[in-house]
Amino acid sequence: MMALFRRDLAIATRSGGAAMLAVLFFLAVVAVAPFGIGPDLNLLARIGPAFLWIGALLASLLGLDRLFQADREDGSLDLILMQETPDLILTVFVKSFAHWVASGLPLVLVSPLLGLLMNMGLESTGAVMLTLLAGTPAIAFIGATGAAVAVALPRGGLLVSILILPLAIPVLIFGVSASYAAVTDPDPFWPPFMILSAITLFFAALGPVAAAVALKAAAD
């Protein structure tokens, strides 16, 4: 399984890999926000956490459709599917995790930079970073299900986003509310953050199972 993790990471970071694209998309999406909203720094600081979260959510959806499709096109998926179901679930888990490390973790790492651009304070930036770290894996895991369902479709990319966005709403809700709770005084930070972490753990268990079932069903 380590071999699979290393392979997917190597592919994502080789030239032409998708890892940097998600970060660029994140950067671009958040950077255009002020053009629509206006350059008022106080306003930007107030909506900053929410906007960073929305940007990260959209950026995480970006490469998801390739998660299994690339393996299907070159025939690797057949060999991956020739496993007993428990092994297959573990394989899907490892692939989703590798996907997150390659394209989700960089989002977390550049978020302070964007926090700077949105005039967010140190605490607020730190809270967004922490919630992104806890929350974005959930998108990768639940996204694996969407990617598996749409694996055989030629233009699955848009469809995967449409399928996954509603499922990722809870992640967004608790991620953003924890980020705000860290800076607005009466609201406690830990309850929404714990729920966010719980959602991630839940999706980490559910997503790979659902994806494995969908992949088995889609084999043709």
Binding site: P34, P39, L41, L116, L117
Partner: peptide, 11 residues
């Protein structure tokens, strides 16, 4: 007094 402002040239 801030790291970044969305002024025309910087932007």
């Amino acid at each position: 007094g801030t790291w970044w402002v969305w002024d025309a040239r910087l932007t």
